[in-house]
Structures are given as structure tokens and as C-alpha cells.
């Protein structure tokens, strides 16, 4: 499963910096994610992992540096454009559209890749109807893909925690991403659910989508990722294959007290 070192970078972060008041959340972080790999981003709480996600997906404007995605720079402060370019994400604290059904949540995810406007909606011309049917079909497929097809008609609010995480992944996949960014997808999951999640992510990779993964579950990260970067106090202190990261002295120091690698 090892990815060739020669494959071109899909995403390059170049000295990305972000500070909040006096706190430096990201200090000139550079990293490069190759096409087709699962790239892990780990680090103690508050190390800046989610901040990096937010900069990448346009929710925060970086104070310095830039992202190069699929060969051209990403516009800062334009979340919908980042999504249009092919970057989809999930959220650490799960942000679903609570009062919409699971199916509708995924259907909204198709927004970017479909066209119908107000006139189509009102007059329901054949083209709009065909598109609407395709949206629903694709959404059903994706629910099936992440394994919650039977919950399609439930409100997102009423799903179990694990199912909500999967639904968020399905919604992200609906945007047809080149890069899928998962922010602690295994948080709060039990061992069985985590194992299923792992299979799901492996499947996503096999289907050709590159995955950027923030995760605290070290077993999951080490077993799943091709390469791992470690952030500590907003700085990248290590980037390597999992086995090497685990032996790295700085990483072990960073985690002492955090106890994550224990």
C-alpha cells in the first residue's frame, strides 16, 4: 500500500502562520501531501491542528504563508471556493444540519456539483427533475457507502454519535473532494465503530481520494496513515512514516505529560 515518493503533491502548505492576539497558533508550518495518500496530523491538544484545517478550508485567513492545491494557490477566506476546488472537511465537534434528514444532509452536499436554480425549482422542468433524481440517488449511495442507509429519513439530530460522524463523512464525500480532511473522526467511538471507520477510510483512499486525518487514536493513525506530521505549539516538529515518528525523540518529549503515546 505504500505510495510512491514520486507522486506529485496534491496540497502544499508553505510557511502557514496564524496567531490569535499574542498566541501563535501556527508558526510557519510547511507540509506537503501527496496524491492518494492518507496523511496524519497529530499533536497534543492545542497544538494547532484544527487551526491548520480552518486556514486550509478558508474559515480562517492565515497571517502568513499560503496553500498550493493541485498546482495553484488557494484563495484565503473563501470556504466555498476551497470546497469547489476539491477540499472537503468534517468538524471536530460535528456540524450537521440538525433539523434536516440524513438524506437531505448528503443531498445538500451535492449543491456544489449541481446547477438547478430558482426557476428550475419552481417549474420542475425535465432537466431539473433528472438532476434532482440524480442527487437523491447519489446521496442514497453515499449513505449506503458509509453504512447508514437505514437512517436516511431520520433527522440528523436524532442519529447516534457514531452515525453522525459517518453522516458528516458522507456529506463531505458528496462534494466530490480530491482531498478529504477529517477532524478527529474517531473521537467518542468505541472499538467496533473505530474498526469500521478504519475500513471506511481505507475504502475512500482506494477510491482515489487523498485523506488528511487529525486523530488522537494513535493506533488508528499508525495503522492507517502513509505519513504523519506532528504539530507541537504550532510548529511542525516531525514528518515521516508512522514507524519513524513513533521513535522520534522530539515527538516523545512533546507527548510526555499528554500521555497519548503511552
Amino acid at each position: 500500500m505504500m505510495v510512491e515518493n514520486l507522486s506529485p503533491p496534491l496540497l502544499e502548505a508553505r510557511q502557514v502562520a496564524k496567531h490569535f492576539g499574542g498566541v501563535k497558533a501556527l508558526r510557519d508550518v510547511s507540509l506537503s501531501i501527496r496524491q492518494g495518500e492518507v496523511y496524519g496530523l497529530i499533536g497534543p491538544n492545542g497544538a494547532g491542528k484544527t487551526t491548520l484545517f480552518n486556514c486550509l478550508t478558508g474559515l480562517y485567513v492565515p497571517d502568513g504563508g499560503s496553500f498550493i492545491f493541485a498546482g495553484s494557490p488557494l484563495a484565503a477566506d473563501a470556504p466555498h471556493e476551497a470546497a469547489a476546488r476539491g477540499i472537503a472537511r468534517t468538524f471536530q465537534n460535528i456540524r450537521l444540519f440538525g433539523n434536516m434528514t440524513a438524506l437531505e444532509n448528503v443531498m445538500v452536499g451535492r449543491h456544489l456539483r449541481t446547477r438547478a436554480g430558482v426557476f428550475g425549482a419552481i417549474f420542475r422542468d425535465p432537466k431539473t427533475r433528472a438532476e434532482e433524481a440524480a442527487i437523491q440517488r447519489r446521496a442514497e449511495e453515499l449513505l449506503h457507502y458509509v453504512g447508514i442507509a437505514d437512517r436516511a429519513w431520520d433527522l440528523a439530530n436524532n442519529l447516534s454519535y457514531g452515525d453522525q460522524r459517518r453522516l458528516e463523512i458522507a456529506r463531505a464525500l458528496a462534494t466530490e473532494p480530491k482531498l478529504l480532511c477529517l477532524d478527529e473522526p474517531a473521537a467518542g467511538m468505541n472499538a467496533t465503530e473505530t474498526a469500521e471507520l478504519r475500513r471506511l477510510i481505507e475504502g475512500i483512499r482506494q477510491d482515489g481520494t487523498t485523506v488528511l486525518l487529525i486523530e488522537h487514536d494513535v493506533k488508528l493513525v499508525m495503522g492507517l496513515c502513509d505519513r504523519v506530521a506532528v504539530l507541537d505549539y504550532g510548529e511542525k516538529i516531525c514528518e515521516d512514516v508512522p514507524a519513524a515518528v513513533q521513535r522520534d525523540q522530539r515527538v516523545i518529549e512533546a507527548y510526555l505529560g499528554g500521555g497519548h503515546l503511552a
Binding site: T57, G58, L59, P79, H80, A83, A84, A88, R89, F91, R95, L96, F97, G98, N99, M100, E104, M107, V108, G109, R110, H111, L112, T114, R115, A116, G117, V118, G120, A121, T128, E131, E132, I135, R171, A172, A174, T175
Partner: peptide, 21 residues
């Protein structure tokens, strides 16, 4: 409709709506 769902998505969570494009 596509537009109606987008409206509801914004109503439910604007950040998430932006993030899916």
C-alpha cells in the same frame, strides 16, 4: 429543491454550509 436545501443548510449551520461549498 437544491436551492431550498441550501437555504435550510444556512439556517441550520452557516459554517458547515460554507464548508460544503
Amino acid at each position: 429543491s437544491r436551492i431550498g436545501r441550501a437555504w435550510q443548510a444556512i439556517r441550520e449551520d452557516e459554517v458547515a454550509a460554507k464548508a460544503i461549498g
